[in-house]
Design a protein around this nucleic acid. Structure first.
Lengths: 141, 141
DNA sequence: TTATATCGGATAAATAAAATCCGATTTATC
DNA sequence: GATAAATCGGATTTTATTTATCCGATATAA
């Protein structure tokens, strides 16, 4: 029932790119250092983000990653599901037939509702909002 | 971000005991068979449920498990947290110091809110409700 | 006293998460 | 071009967690 570190790292990476700005290419090594992500692991995660069109990977010298959508349109759910696949709390939510109890089971309906609530919370949070909140916090120092 | 099978089994076990009635002792083997839970594993899970006073374990011949609270007062959250410990979606929710970003990080606040929503959903679901919903479903056949 | 059950600690097996390695490829710059 | 700086992407390794199982000890009914 917990986030994987992969998700945590993916969010950090996108947060960093959002902060730098949409069109800026940032080197993998720099993101890894500043966001405390193991370098080669970030490479793997980036590939997944790229497959979902969240970032673009620029190869070669001076290469790195660049944010594709604007932070206003990009949500936590987008990033999480890019690396984890669809979010759900129990197998039976996605594949009812995986459990012999499912024809009558009402626990499944609870998992289903809870899953939808969770996805909704994540869908409502854009990276623009996150950045804004963090910068407000800093400026009120 | 998923339930463990241990939780799933714990819920099935309590569901079965709730259905049998509060004062009835049911053998481990019978619960294991009817609810498709590996026998020895159910033993382990039962120990955790007993530590949280959700069931009472009766030893010796004709032994087994007995539900302690009434199904009206027992919630999904109680059972889940008896086997998993406190529910939370990311380490930083429980231990903010575990992440270097936490002083300014607003993602953590989202995890925190989502965690509370999830716990609330589970807290609102009693086993009495679950049973009732399932028996209504059956009788409307 | 015997048969039936669970206890509870130790251990094993299986799966998933987390991370690394490295030859291939791509691009900027000299 | 040649070279250096990056990432790619597939394979592999390491580590942690999940999912069990085993078994001697203990408890209880008959």
């Amino acid at each position: 029932m917990k986030l994987t570190r992969e998700c945590e790292y993916a969010v950090r990476c996108v947060l960093y790119l959002s902060h730098e700005g949409k069109e800026i290419v940032v080197g993998r090594r720099r993101i890894a250092e500043e966001m405390e992500i193991p370098g080669p692991f970030l490479g793997k995660i980036a590939q997944q983000l790229a497959r979902s069109n969240i970032i673009e990977i620029v190869q070669g010298s001076k290469g790195g990653f660049r944010l594709v959508p604007s932070p206003e349109k990009l949500t936590l759910l987008d990033v999480i599901e890019a690396v984890m696949g669809k979010v759900y709390l129990n197998d039976c939510v996605l594949r009812p037939d995986s459990c012999f109890r499912s024809p009558t089971c009402h626990v499944r309906l609870v998992w289903k509702a809870a899953t939808e609530r969770l996805r909704e919370t994540l869908r409502k949070t854009s990276f623009a909002k996150l950045l804004e909140a963090e910068s407000e916090y800093l400026s009120s120092d």
